[in-house]
């Protein structure tokens, strides 16, 4: 692809802290290379802001290679920007043209309060995992992985669900701010494996109870989550979560 440079007009959400009301600031950035990543473009802008003595834009990032789930920008109305199946850190400036206006907002959900600028508090996801997104095993010698047979199809489906990096884009995209795609990925990943079956019922009940407690909405199957998920987690997992929850909820005596 041919290299080009561009001048852009950015509108970025700025918010000092949780209490601040927040507002959009406009920035002109020039000479941006089409080879840069989106975050590098923000880095360039931040260097300039620091030189000018103003506050750089706070944003989350860590691995910058699409595996950690930290980056989280809502770009031109879509979580993680215009490309499909990519995280913000994997988005490159060749997705834009000279003269474009780019609006950058944080994930919006009451369950994900803004900490500063584009950084939101996603610890609600950690608490959902803590409530049941694990298996309990006694420690000791590592067991030979091949001693438990797993059907290939289930192993693949489980692996596909385990791809979820917990970024929260599904919540950001959903009109109900529902975390169902995330929870369904975590529940499916374990429910599909023999190792997950002993705690299968309590897991789904506890994780859903925590999801509701954190203030996420409920799922109405619109499919917006699936369309933005950088790991292309399938909405079929939500139907599996529903089935798991309904059967556990109607039979578990606890």
């Amino acid at each position: 692809m041919e290299h080009y440079t561009m001048n852009l007009n950015l509108q970025v959400w700025r918010q000092k802290n949780k209490q601040d009301k927040g507002h959009f600031d406009t920035y002109q950035v020039s000479n941006i290379s089409s080879e840069m990543s989106f975050l590098e473009m923000i880095d360039v802008l931040n260097e300039r802001l620091i030189r000018e003595g103003s506050d750089p834009i706070a944003f989350d990032h860590d691995c910058r290679e699409g595996i950690c789930g930290m980056c989280s920008m809502y770009i031109n109305g879509k979580p993680h920007g215009p490309w499909e199946g990519t995280t913000t850190c994997q988005l490159h400036m060749r997705a834009f043209r000279d003269g474009d206006t780019i609006v950058v907002e944080p994930w919006r959900a009451k369950a994900f309060p803004v900490i500063k600028d584009l950084m939101v508090d996603r610890s609600a996801f950690d608490r959902i995992i803590q409530s049941g997104g694990y298996i309990s095993v006694n420690t000791g010698n590592a067991v030979d992985g091949n001693s438990i047979p797993v059907e290939k199809e289930k192993a693949d489906a489980s692996f596909a669900a385990a791809m979820c990096i917990g970024c929260g884009a599904c919540v950001a995209a959903c009109k109900n701010s529902s975390a169902m795609l995330f929870v369904s990925a975590k529940v499916s990943h374990l429910a599909l494996l023999p190792q997950g079956s002993p705690e299968r019922k309590t897991r789904v009940l506890d994780m859903m109870a925590q999801m509701d407690k954190e203030g996420f909405g409920s799922c109405t199957n619109t499919g917006a989550c699936e369309a933005v998920c950088p790991k292309e987690i399938s909405i079929t997992n939500i139907a599996r979560l529903n089935a798991e929850y309904i059967s556990a909820g109607l039979t578990e005596d606890k």
Partner: peptide, 22 residues
């Protein structure tokens, strides 16, 4: 469900990711 968002977005995802009637 409507009450869960808080501040609404300036640019909406709209029909790009889901059908209007859904």
């Amino acid at each position: 469900n409507r009450s869960k968002r808080g501040i609404s977005y300036k640019v909406n995802y709209g029909n790009r990711g889901s059908k209007w009637y859904s």
